[in-house]
C-alpha cells in the first residue's frame, strides 16, 4: 500500500472521529434538554437534526477529500 493511501485512510478516520464527537455532544445536550422539558421535544429534535446535519456536511467534505487522495 502506498503512503498516500495510508494517509487518506487515516484522515478519513480522523474526520469520522471528529464528526462522531460533535454529533455525540449534540445528542447528549438534546437528550438532557428533552428530559428537562419534554413538552418542547419537537423543537429540540428539529434543531438537533439541523445542527447534526451541518456537522455531517463538514465531515462529508473531509471524507470526499480523503477519497480523492486515495
Amino acid at each position: 500500500m502506498e503512503l498516500s493511501s495510508v494517509a487518506a485512510v487515516l484522515s478519513a478516520a480522523l474526520a469520522v472521529f471528529a464528526a462522531a464527537f460533535g454529533i455525540s455532544k449534540i445528542g447528549k445536550a438534546a437528550m438532557e434538554a428533552i428530559s428537562r422539558q419534554p413538552e418542547s421535544a419537537g423543537n429540540i429534535r428539529t434543531s438537533m437534526i439541523i445542527v447534526a446535519a451541518l456537522i455531517e456536511g463538514v465531515a462529508l467534505f473531509a471524507v470526499v477529500i480523503c477519497f480523492m487522495a486515495l
Binding site: G57, V58, V64
Partner: peptide
C-alpha cells in the same frame, strides 16, 4: 455554494 454542495454530498454519500 457550499450549502447545496453539502446537500448533494450528504444524500449521495
Amino acid at each position: 455554494f457550499t450549502k447545496p454542495f453539502a446537500l448533494m454530498m450528504r444524500l449521495f454519500a
